[in-house]
Write a protein that binds this DNA or RNA. Structure first.
Lengths: 226, 226, 226, 226
DNA sequence: CATGAATGAGCGTTCATTCAT
DNA sequence: TATGAATGAACGCTCATTCAT
């Protein structure tokens, strides 16, 4: 899975009851994060939400950091679950990716919470290298799924865009549009922008491949902060 | 004179010295946020960074919330400053907007800190309605600038995209790509995705206007969280 | 278990040791209040007096308010303990009530501290509705005791005063005289006033019942402040 | 007037404006005390209420203690003003004192605030010797007024009670009854108790003098706390 | 007469964590 | 497996007061 090193080792899940309790806490953590944000997710708040004693949170997960690291994986699972139910019946790359995006966008609108939590983690990860590894693992899974969808359809190489670039483009666009949605709600402009994005997506995946000779940007590579 | 109970905007900036001190603190807050993230920006940490006493932070800004509200405006100023220096010599909408984006992207790579801080605030704003208003004001200024660029060039109405949608699209793309940059650094895929985005941008701004009849998505509007 | 958010009654008294510690703190609070008054009873001061750490006070009682609410009951217990030891051997209402008052007054003079604390709480309660409820509960117990004394003796209905009014009268007189005592010490005038009060008390309880036709005061009822 | 040593020396009242400002602050202090109680009357709160800057409070009164000492006198003035308007036309001691008490009780019910403030000060004074001197000065003026009323009427020496004891009794009864009023509002029992008190008052002031031979209480004198 | 700046101390509270059963 | 007790540190904030102009 590649969830980063040191994970899931200190978690006590010997018995069924233990597993259930741990699950309860993780779920509570998720809810608290979606309601109060990263900073507001104190052990006390989480314990209250889960209906257990504060001490139990540390007991099951060792520390707050470990709990959150564990939660990141759960958020990833959530996001994946929402997407994996899409039928793979697309006949063309364009159709397959478009169906994927449609499904994804519908999910974002129906249940934005996982995304709200995700962006909270992302923002925190910008200044926290450890967390970044875990959060990027979510992004990796996300991209894997997109990539798989593109490949699963016919003639994946006939697009005008390279696959890696396309994957990034879709991922970035989804992130950007989702942020818009979370911050402003679904305005008319946003609706239209989504339509336009999909049109571009379709054209990019069906058009004849172009030469990608020009590279306008030739600066030094930028490393992640931290 | 007495600002009355509640001290609505209790920022003390009567004297030059006071103004300088307040500025010192705001700048320190900015640095701390970029290094430690939203949660790590405690009054103590900020005061240490500014070289003043913790008590003075409250004195000048009344409360941590007020300080951060004040800082949001400052971050907006920063972002705008970086962009406003772009020459407006673009002859076509495509050229003007492309120059804008180039400049913007260069800035992001040269000095990602303001963006890191911005995303920290955005993430917090997702679960904090008050903050959201302030942060969205930054986005508004950003969009105004993009809009102005589009309009300042000739034949703005000849594009295949409506202006509002275009503005959103650019804004969302920049956000999405910047997040990629902050989280992964400037990978080869990202470089290529940027090139592809610019190509799309150019084509969108030069192509003959299309009919935008189709609306594939017709779900209920989604409101911002919170 | 989880007491749920808000921790309604967060007093931890699970173990014997815990009970003892909580008791220690309550007693210390009482001493501090009697020495420093309501405002002077800070958590730090209380913790020092109890020989525990400030943090433990919050741990056992949740908040300062909760601690004081808890203390109010304790003060009530103290006051009741002092009184409940009076023999009930009074043969007439007059004798019973007089014995009660004598005992009470002796107590006030021997150990005025509970009364000093009580008046501190009363004064605070005048501007704090929550506290008023708790403090009035003490008064209720006090009156219950007086009432019980009156009834336990023979011929309670032969007095010239209605029982409720008599109870109030005794209660008010004790409060007024005690305030005098606390503020000026036992002056000669006060001694004499006490004697006079007792004489009135006796006459009121032995005299033939009068008609209580006249109501000189007919104003609008006054509600407690707050 | 005997308001205690060290009073009114540091107060800046050179100009008319200064006097007005000082007055404004004192009045604000009074209002804050009646609303928030002794502990809640911080300089900041008072300044807000007065519509001046916090610094001005210290400027005019030197310190919080000095301000409160000054306020005590003001509360006394308030209480006296309310009473001094009573006509002295009583022909007998009984009538004069009864008229006084009636007027007083009406005042308490119409405007309990001065009394609420007064009891706040009293409670604080129990544990603060300095303040006690000031507050007792109010009590002295109060008693002086009662005494004067008794004497101003005919045949003051014909009562069954000694004058000093009578003064204390009235004062204590008023305090006790007022506390009842502030804590419970004007209940039916309280109304009746007031009527009974007045009846006793009348009888005490008209009845033939008795021998006051018996002193049942012979304990050691009690000094004020502190 | 009036103000802005600054101070050290302390407030009540919450933090994540550890110890001992 | 679960819990109560305890901890040191830090939180944001307010206190009354002093200094300098």
């Amino acid at each position: 899975m590649g969830l980063g090193p040191g994970l899931e080792n200190s978690i006590k899940r010997s018995t069924d009851h233990g597993r259930r309790q741990a699950d309860l806490i993780i779920e509570a953590t998720f809810r608290v994060l979606s309601k109060e944000g990263y900073g507001g997710a104190s052990l006390q708040r989480i314990a209250d939400e889960a209906g257990v004693q504060k001490r139990m949170v540390s007991y099951y997960f060792g520390s707050r950091k470990a709990l959150l690291r564990n939660l990141v994986a759960r958020v990833g699972d959530r996001l994946m679950e929402q997407l994996s139910s899409v039928s793979e019946a697309g006949t063309s790359p364009a159709e397959a990716v478009e169906a994927l995006f449609d499904h994804l966008w519908t999910q974002v609108k129906e249940d934005p919470q996982p995304y709200a939590v995700y962006f909270g983690l992302v923002a925190e990860a910008v200044t926290d290298g450890d967390l970044r590894l875990s959060v990027n693992a979510i992004g990796d899974r996300y991209r894997d799924l997109i990539r798989h969808r593109i490949r699963s359809s016919a003639a994946p190489d006939s697009t005008s865009l390279s696959e890696p670039s396309l994957v990034i483009a879709i991922s970035a666009a989804v992130q950007g549009l989702t942020l818009e949605l979370l911050m402003r709600g679904e305005t008319e402009e946003l609706r239209q922008a989504v339509v336009d994005f999909k049109r571009w997506l379709r054209s990019a995946l069906t058009a004849a491949p172009e030469l990608e000779a020009d590279r306008e940007l030739d600066c030094d590579p930028v490393e992640p902060l931290g």
